[in-house]
Simulated scan of single mutants.
Amino acid sequence: MGFSGFCDLKLWKRIWAETTTEINLLAENWKYILGGLICQYIHGLAARGVHYFHRPGPILQDAGFFLLPELGQDKAYVSEFVFTFIFLSFILWTFHPFILKSKKIYTVLIWCRVFACLIACQILRVITFYSTQLPGPNYHCREGSKFATLPRPDNMLEVLLIVPRGVLFGCGDLIFSSHMIFSLVFVRTYYKYGTQRFLKQCAWLTVVIQSLLIIASRKHYTVDVVVAWYTVNLVVFFIDKKLPELPDRSGAAALLLPLSKDSKTKEGISHKLLNGHSGDSAADWRPRSQINGKILEDGNVVHVEDGINGV
């Protein structure tokens, strides 16, 4: 077997071990993942529902519209491109443990935390945009556009079915920006659990640029973006305080998460830790030390406390 074949074999073994690990974690936490996906659908239904109430009108006076030049309808895709880049980059990063050796996170557990933050922010968002419907500043929401209002639905299926056109041409769900919710939650998550300082700085800069592009594209009022900045950051801050911290996968504490919380498991891990055993294989299901603090850029961690972690 050549060198390349040996490397391929090691890679497939790593992918298989990681897949087995994540499947076991998914078996324990599937309710949180499923609940998060269902809530994304409910949020989409709420955004479509408010479109039925939207009535076009004169665009409100806005400081951002005065300060930032209008990109125009033909360049509206620029902000969507930046958002798509942030969205896909974060998804790829959450799955990097399947490929790379430097494993800092568990994919399932990261997405459980992400969904918790998204759901809390989206609940606040739905309450806000149903409280007051503002005339949409986007081009398809203005007077004279056929997409500005939705006709009464003929049947329930039309209400429950979310089509891509409805997502792209929605109106009325303004305060606060959904694009900013996703972007800020993703960037804050990477800032806490990522390891590359330069990429963290680039991520924050990208979100700032996206904020300006959203306003310049007239997709949201400035207040929609401003409210998103402080609301999402506060929500993520308080949720992080409430949820148990994720385990670290590096150093002497590189033990896998427990699949059960019985006393025998706890006693077994205490004995193994005292004897200095550690591992990162799919077959070695032992709880690990819990980390209370973010992962530093150089791979070290701060303030380690012993304990069994959860999501």
Results as ranks from 00 to 15, higher is better:
G35E: 09
T128E: 04
T94I: 06
Q201V: 14
T94W: 04
Y130G: 00
T21P: 01
T132D: 04
M1G: 12
E22N: 11
L68S: 03
T222I: 09
S217E: 10
I291A: 09
F65A: 03
S289P: 06
Y52G: 11
Y190K: 06
I42M: 04
Y221Q: 08
I15D: 03
A252T: 10
L259D: 10
A282D: 08
D306G: 01
W285F: 02
K264H: 13
F53I: 14
L246P: 14
E22I: 09
Q290D: 01
S145H: 05
C141M: 10
L92V: 14
Q122L: 00
L256A: 07
V223N: 02
S278I: 08
T107W: 01
G136W: 06
M180Y: 02
G49T: 04
A254W: 10
F90Y: 15
L246K: 08
A216Q: 02
A252L: 12
S211V: 07
D306Y: 07
I209W: 04
A254T: 14
V114E: 02
K104N: 14
G293V: 02
I119H: 10
P153Y: 08
K10L: 15
I91C: 11
C39V: 02
V236M: 05
G36Y: 07
G35R: 04
H303N: 15
F186L: 06
R218K: 12
L92G: 06
K242A: 14
T107D: 03
L37D: 02
A47Q: 11
L213R: 04
F129L: 09
L246D: 13
C202E: 12
L273H: 08
T21Q: 04
P258Q: 06
G299K: 07
Q61N: 12
L68P: 01
Q61M: 02
F186D: 05
K264I: 12
K241A: 11
A120S: 14
I291D: 05
Q40M: 10
K266L: 11
L25M: 09
G166Y: 06
W93E: 06
L255C: 13
D173E: 13
E22C: 09
I269C: 12
V236T: 11
T107P: 01
A254M: 14
A283E: 15
N24Q: 13
I15S: 03
A63W: 14
E22S: 08
Q196L: 07
I110R: 00
V163F: 08
E158K: 13
S217T: 14
S211T: 10
G293Q: 07
G72F: 03
G5N: 12
D298K: 05
L9Y: 13
G136L: 03
G307D: 09
P244I: 04
I105R: 03
P69A: 11
